[in-house]
Design a protein around this nucleic acid. Sequence first.
DNA 1: CGTCTATTTGAATGTACTCAAAAGCGGTGG
DNA 2: CCACCGCTTTTGAGTACATTCAAATAGACG
Lengths: 181, 181
Amino acid sequence: MHIMLTPEEQVQALMLFKTKKIEKRKYLLPSGDISRNIYFVDKGCLRMFYTDQDAQEHTVCFYPENWWAIDTVSFFKEKPAMYSLQALEDSEVYHITLPRLEALFVKVPKFERFFRILTQNGFDMYERRVTSSLSKSATARYLEFRKQYPGLELRIAQKHIASYVGITAVFLSMMRKDKNL
Amino acid sequence: MHIMLTPEEQVQALMLFKTKKIEKRKYLLPSGDISRNIYFVDKGCLRMFYTDQDAQEHTVCFYPENWWAIDTVSFFKEKPAMYSLQALEDSEVYHITLPRLEALFVKVPKFERFFRILTQNGFDMYERRVTSSLSKSATARYLEFRKQYPGLELRIAQKHIASYVGITAVFLSMMRKDKNL
DNA sequence: CGTCTATTTGAATGTACTCAAAAGCGGTGG
DNA sequence: CCACCGCTTTTGAGTACATTCAAATAGACG
């Protein structure tokens, strides 16, 4: 979910948010908990991931600076999260709870639209991800990752990139060597 | 997107909808057009699919009876659809345009919530599909399809199932034979 | 019935995975 | 500051899963 507010809108909104620092490797949301907050990443980088029956992790999304991180389903439906949200670098985030968000909607109705668009952008992203994961090769998917998150490959572990692209860390390493990526 | 209204709510809503019959293989929405309608499937079955650069089709979702079919992004953002919507059987659908839907929201505010949930369910479905396409074997994905759409494998072409599962029709055929699926 | 498309079958190929071992790197404690 | 430990990445060999191409069979529809 990636969207920009004008600077003054950001100020208005951020007044209602709290801030939080979170260390590398720590969790903002462990899966199974109900996601009580939406996060806006100010510094650092988060990832959302899912752990399958074989204890394999699958990264659904990265959230570097200026991204909004949320488990939409857990947050709005108030049900236990299927995903975990973890810091990949020492990070600083703004966050807001659902009741305060609803207060914000009443105060500044414009944000209702903003969050609808946010949800739709997330939707859009998932649609693209479904089609690409079903139709494209590992190499193409890795190049899409590079395009989606320029420079991020220098900041985070390859195993996390591999878990996003849907391949093993070993295969990613070989691919990068063979094709100079 | 799969959700049920109570019978009386359905009646209320469907009064504002129009009906349409659509023949097998015909399109309700060709990709590139703006999706002006949301469809509710009364009889038959639709599919939404995406055609890639190599002219390969990838089915994103099937919509048998009682499913809501919509290209969320195209419909709400009024931008050209990335997807096509096609009938797989002779079908009958209810449909409504965005202006009339907004009128419905004013008249029966409850539907705003209903459509938010509809969108969230779609979101939920996409999330599951992303994780399963990235983490599960072709066989597991096929079994998921069977569970998601009981009996549908008897009604529609295997090549469409293959394009949903993300494998070739040839491989699906071999898989079903080898493992008695 | 004939034509067109979908499905099945088989062989050869390619893509990505597992297992295993070695090398690299980062954080911690002495 | 350095040495060590643990985790990540690289490298290699062998394997499994899924694809392509081709040809034969089966089914759908006019």
